[in-house]
Design a protein around this nucleic acid. Structure first.
Lengths: 124, 124
DNA sequence: CGGCATCCTCGTTGATACTG
DNA sequence: CAGTATCAACGAGGATGCCG
């Protein structure tokens, strides 16, 4: 797994398990990547890029590598020209589905409420 | 709410609501702070510091301010000497309880599984 | 097509010292 | 007690360009 994830895991015995989840799921695009893979099953690198908001290849690569190192996604390289690389969820990745869903729901409610609050009583 | 949170909320309409949750809950100590406040009800600044692993005052202050700006905690200042400041969850903060719990559970399972894997087949 | 190498910017974390 | 001010270190995210 990634060094960051490993460090977070090593440094805690107590209640901070939530930080482990955030270390694993907390990167840019990661929840979206997991959601997309859950919905589509298998996706190629370019497909993921288009379904997201076209992050730079460097960034998308990085997120996918981290998810792979943390054991959530499986990367399959087809040795051919032009190259073809497929990504899918591992069992561990699938186990994160409900959690990502919970994050999405609460985040959506929160965002909606904040937007309503801002409209009713603008702060900025 | 914080600029970071606001930006995340502004920049998404679609599936990335999960990133909103992570923007709000993702800071250092934040899940632990929310858990502690959920368990204890009301805590003073110093009590929080001791219950956590004694983060520097600057860091703890920052996390609490962000949680306050994001509407999850309520800060009460007693004008007296010596100073006394109390923190408690807002309704919004309480609504995050199940989510923090879900993060904790998945993170705990993940960490346990990774530790077992590391023991069985050390990587480092 | 699916990357990697390089460079840069910014935010977050944190140590240390000081204050009302 | 509950902070603030200052400074340093680090990593994530991103732009750009090249490659097999």
């Amino acid at each position: 797994m990634r060094e960051k994830t490993e460090r977070v895991i090593r440094e805690w015995t107590d209640s901070c398990d939530a930080e482990v989840s955030i270390a694993v799921l907390g990167g840019a695009w990661k929840p979206s990547i997991l959601s997309l893979l859950a919905r589509h099953g298998v996706l190629r690198f370019g497909e993921l890029g288009r379904l997201l908001d076209n992050p730079t290849a460097r960034v998308l690569t990085r997120q996918l590598r981290e998810l792979e190192q943390d054991g959530l996604v499986v990367r399959t390289v087809y040795q051919q020209v032009p190259p073809k690389v497929e990504y899918r969820l591992s069992e561990l990745g699938e186990s994160a589905g409900p959690l990502v869903e919970a994050l999405t729901q609460w985040g959506g409610q929160y965002a909606a409420q904040q937007r309503a609050g801002l409209t009713a009583a603008p702060v900025g």
